[in-house]
């Protein structure tokens, strides 16, 4: 049904949503669907109002000898245009809610296959990997400046951490956007469905260097990702800090640690009990 409508809009050349960046995550599709439904409903409402208005303007131009209808309203009509919009808006609410909760409720997050900590600072992203031991803030952690590497079709759990002002992590193709607050960890997730290199700009004004603050999400297929992991964390036993391969620097060098009040246990990334979103009292 929706496909046919989209097809019809394409043929009439009124499909504004053609401009959307390609959908490259599991929930991008779901968000686009809500987008389309609202686009169709509001489009019809706009058409209705415009047609009526043009009709009335042409039909009811003042002419000598004709008098306007003396009417103060019509209760039945007014009830209709109160009740119908109410039902439509409630419908949109319930329809939106199911998609929203899947994407943003920490209790409904899927189990993640890869964990990454994103640190935002004026004016760059840092991506921290826990390394083979799966724990952050250990010696085998690695940090990549501006580049995130993830496998395709796997759930990637992000822990977003700010250090100075508010930033917002935005990946247009994934339909992922989440503000990042200083001194708070906010969880997010995505599951990329396409390989490639996607731009990840900051979407919240963060100062004079806000424009141009961006990174890249590199989505690899399974083999590529395994190869990348093997390259970054060579299987040989490592005693000291991992070798710098040129792709990034080690974590300890510029990651302030002592003053971060939140726990850095990787368990923290699990759904449900995360430290996100304390409501301001």
């Amino acid at each position: 049904m929706l496909e046919q409508l989209i097809d019809l809009m394409n043929r009439l050349n009124v499909n504004m949503l053609n401009w959307l960046p390609e959908a490259a995550s599991t929930y991008a599709q779901a968000i686009d669907e809500v987008f389309y439904i609202i686009y169709i409903i509001t489009g019809l409402a706009f058409l209705l109002v415009t047609v009526l208005m043009f009709w009335f303007l042409l039909q009811f131009k003042a002419r000598p000898g004709r008098r306007a209808r003396y009417s103060h309203g019509n209760v039945a009509l007014e009830l209709i245009w109160t009740i119908v919009p109410t039902l439509v808006f409630l419908g949109i609410f319930f329809y939106s809610q199911s998609t929203w909760s899947i994407i943003k409720y920490p209790s409904e997050f899927p189990e993640s296959d890869v964990q990454v900590r994103v640190v935002a600072k004026q004016f760059a992203w840092e991506f921290h990997y826990p390394g083979p031991d799966g724990e952050f803030d250990t010696d085998d952690d690695k940090m990549f400046d501006g580049d995130l590497y993830v496998p395709v079709n796997k759930v990637v759990g992000l822990m977003l951490r700010g250090s100075d002002v508010i930033h917002s992590f935005f990946v247009p193709e994934f339909r992922l956007k989440q503000d990042i607050l200083p001194r708070r960890d906010i969880p997010a997730w995505f599951n990329a469905t396409k390989t490639g290199r996607f731009e990840a700009p900051c979407a919240e004004l963060c100062g004079p260097g806000h424009s141009g603050m961006k990174g890249w999400v590199n989505v690899y297929d399974d083999a590529e990702y395994q190869a990348w992991v093997a390259e970054q964390w060579p299987p040989a036993p490592v005693e000291e800090a991992p070798v710098d391969t040129g792709a990034g620097k080690t974590d300890q060098e510029d990651m302030p640690q002592g003053d971060v009040p939140l726990q850095d246990d990787v368990d923290q990334m699990d759904p449900g009990d995360s430290g996100q979103a304390d409501i301001v009292e």
Partner: peptide
């Protein structure tokens, strides 16, 4: 009418900011 898009939380994820 364009306000309804951002009132819908999932669509707002994309069009916010």
């Amino acid at each position: 009418l364009s306000g309804i898009f951002m009132a819908s939380t999932p669509v707002d994820i994309f069009i916010h900011d």
